[in-house]
């Protein structure tokens, strides 16, 4: 499996052509309505004081999403940023802070970040969630941060993400743990977590 990345960590990642020229930095990640895949990125200019670009980067123009750069063939793949965000969910606008619940109505928590798979797929594989106390009871005063796999089916209802019960049977404490979970390693049940 390709490296998993928190979408917020993509902000400021350079967008580089295969010719070696940096054309922009990632400003925000845009997901489709089902929060199933990345549809593109909004961009900022390269200079310290440069603001948002009017151009956006659609996922179809991405050659590879890597640990250190978003690779594109050339800058001809950039499109009007307004077209990119129409009817789609930028992280900041829609997904961050959304409630996560199960189909049975169990409250899981709120979305802190979206985890995407690097490489060429652009798949959303999970969420970093501030878990509710009912979902993960414990002695700590602070809400636990856990990684929850997206699962095969997910419904977006307003500001809520509805996951199947199976998706939250296991959770992970970090990205390597989520990588193992998504790859099919059962991991630990949430009740067994410290």
């Amino acid at each position: 499996m390709n490296e998993l990345m928190a979408a917020r960590s993509l902000t400021t990642r350079p967008v580089v052509t295969l010719g070696g020229d940096a054309v922009a930095h990632v400003k925000d990640t845009v997901c489709d309505a089902a929060a199933g895949s990345v549809t593109g990125f909004t961009l900022t200019g390269r200079g310290l004081l440069s603001g948002s670009l009017r151009e956006g980067l659609p996922w179809r123009a991405v050659y590879a999403l890597g640990h250190d750069a978003v690779m594109i063939r050339d800058r001809r793949g950039l499109v009007d940023a307004a077209a990119l965000t129409t009817h789609r969910h930028s992280l900041r606008a829609r997904l961050l802070g959304a409630e996560v619940v199960t189909e049975a109505g169990t409250e899981i928590g709120t979305v802190l970040d979206v985890v995407v798979e690097g490489g060429t797929g652009g798949r959303v594989v999970g969420f970093r969630v501030a878990a509710s106390r009912r979902f993960l009871p414990g002695p700590t005063r602070h809400r636990r941060r856990v990684y929850v796999p997206r699962g095969g089916t997910l419904t977006v209802t307003g500001r809520s993400l509805v996951l199947p019960e199976d998706a939250v049977r296991y959770v992970a404490d970090d990205l390597p743990g989520l990588t193992a979970l998504v790859a099919g390693v059962p991991g630990r049940g949430r009740g067994a977590l410290p």
């Binding site: 580089v16 052509t17 010719g19 070696g20």
Partner: peptide, 10 residues
Amino acid sequence: LRGLGDYALV
């Protein structure tokens, strides 16, 4: 080698 630009050698 694939490309050599202002940011990197690809």
